[in-house]
Nucleic acid binder design. Structure first.
Lengths: 208, 208
DNA sequence: TACAAAATTAAACAACCGTTTAATTTAAAC
DNA sequence: GTTTAAATTAAACGGTTGTTTAATTTTGTA
C-alpha cells in the first residue's frame, strides 16, 4: 500500500478532505476539487487514477498518522476518576483536530460492506477499548466504580454523543444561542465536555 | 403545511424512503425512484415540485405521528424515573421501526447547508426537547433529579449513542459475539436499551 | 354523451458528472 | 543543446442529472 505522496498530491488530498467532509463524497465533484486546489481536472485521474481511489488514498494518508497519535493514558499516576476525565478530553480533542477525516469515516464507511474492507479501523477501535477497560478495571478494583458496567458501550456513548451534537450544529447553535463558530467550538470544549464527563462518571459510580 | 397525501404520492414516498436510506439523497436519482415505483419520471415534479420537496414531504409524512406519542407520555401517571425509562424505550423503538427515515435524517441533514433549508425538522426537534424538559422539570420539582442537568444535551446522548452503535454494527457484532442480525436487534432492545436508561438516570440522579 | 380537470406520457432541455485524449509545456538527464 | 520523461492543459467524450414542455390519456362531473 502506497503511503508516500508528493506535494501536489497532498495539496489535492487536503482540499478533497475539506470538500468531502463538507459536502460528502457524492456531493463533491472533481471539478470542484480541481478549482479549489487550482489544478486541472485531469490531474486527479492522473495522480490517483479515479475519484474513488482518491478517497482511498485520503484514508491511507490520514490513518497512518492517526496510529502514531495513540497515547497511553493508563500508566499515568492519576486516580481512576481523573483518568476518565482525561480520557474524554483526549477523545474530544482528537476528533476536533481531525474533524474532516472523522466525518468522512463516519459517513462514507458506515455501510457494512465498506466496514468489512477497512480492517485498519478495527485496530484503532480495539486499542481504544483496551485503554478504557484498563482504566475501568482499576477503578473497580479500588471499589470506586460499579462492577456491572457495559464497557464496550462506553465509547459509543462518548463518540456518538459528540458526533450527533456536532452534526446538528446549526440547530444547537441556534438553540444554545451560540452566534459564531468559535462560540460553538468553545462550548464543546467546556460545557459539552463537562456534560460527557459527568455522564460517564455518573454511570460508573452511581448505585441505583 | 401539507400533511395528507394520496395513494400515488405515498407509493412514491415509500420507494424514495427506501432508496434514500440505501443510497443517500444525492446517490438516488429521480429516474431510479420512478423506475422502482413504476411511474413516469415527471410525476415526482408533478406531485412534489422538486426532488428536495419530495424529501421534505417524506419527513413531514414520517414525523407527523411522532408528536402524539411524545406528548401522551408526559401526561401519563408515572413517576419521573419511570417516564425516563419509557421515553428512552420510545426513542429506541421509534428509530428501530423507522430506520429508513432516521438514517436519511442522520446522514442528509448533517451538512449545515441542508440543515438550513429544512426548517421542518426543527419543529420536531423542538417538540422532543419540550417533552424531555417537562419530564425532567417534574423530577426536579419532586427533588428526585439534580438541578444542574444540561437538558438540551440529553437527546444527543440518547440518539448519538444509538446511531454510533448501529452504524458500527459490523464491528460490534463481532466484538459482542452477536452472530446474526436478529441477535444484534435483540441486543439493542435489551442490554443496549438498559445501558442508555442507566446512563441517563445516573446522570439525572447522581450527586458528585 | 360532452366537457373540463387531473393524471400520465415521451421527449427535449441545459447543466453537470467522471474520465480520456492528444497536444503542449516543463523539468531532468545525458 | 538535445533527448526523454513527467507534468499540465484545453477540449471532447459519453452519460447522467433534475426539470420542463407539450401532447395525450384518464377521470370525474354536469
Amino acid at each position: 500500500m502506497k503511503t508516500d505522496f508528493n506535494e501536489k498530491q497532498i495539496q489535492i488530498l487536503l482540499i478533497a478532505e475539506k470538500l468531502f467532509a463538507e459536502n460528502g463524497f457524492e456531493g463533491t465533484s472533481i471539478r470542484t476539487i480541481a478549482k479549489e486546489a487550482d489544478i486541472n481536472i485531469a490531474m486527479v485521474s492522473y495522480y490517483f487514477g479515479s475519484k474513488e481511489k482518491l478517497l482511498e488514498a485520503l484514508i491511507v494518508y490520514r490513518t497512518s498518522d492517526l496510529k502514531i497519535q495513540m497515547e497511553n493514558l493508563s500508566v499515568e499516576n492519576l486516580d481512576p476518576i481523573e483518568k476518565i476525565d482525561k480520557l474524554i478530553e483526549l477523545y474530544i480533542n482528537r476528533i476536533r483536530c481531525n474533524k474532516g477525516i472523522y466525518r468522512i469515516l463516519h459517513f462514507e464507511f458506515s455501510s457494512e460492506e465498506m466496514e468489512e474492507k477497512m480492517k485498519i479501523l478495527n485496530d484503532v477501535r480495539d486499542r481504544n477499548l483496551k485503554s478504557i477497560e484498563t482504566i475501568i478495571h482499576e477503578g473497580q478494583a479500588k471499589g470506586i466504580f460499579r462492577k456491572d458496567v457495559n464497557i464496550p458501550l462506553i465509547s459509543p456513548t462518548i463518540m456518538g454523543t459528540f458526533f450527533h451534537f456536532s452534526m446538528n450544529k446549526a440547530y444547537f447553535k441556534k438553540l444554545l444561542k451560540l452566534d459564531t463558530d468559535e462560540a460553538f467550538e468553545n462550548y464543546i470544549q467546556t460545557t459539552f465536555k463537562t456534560h460527557i464527563q459527568q455522564t460517564i462518571k455518573a454511570l460508573l459510580i452511581y448505585e441505583s
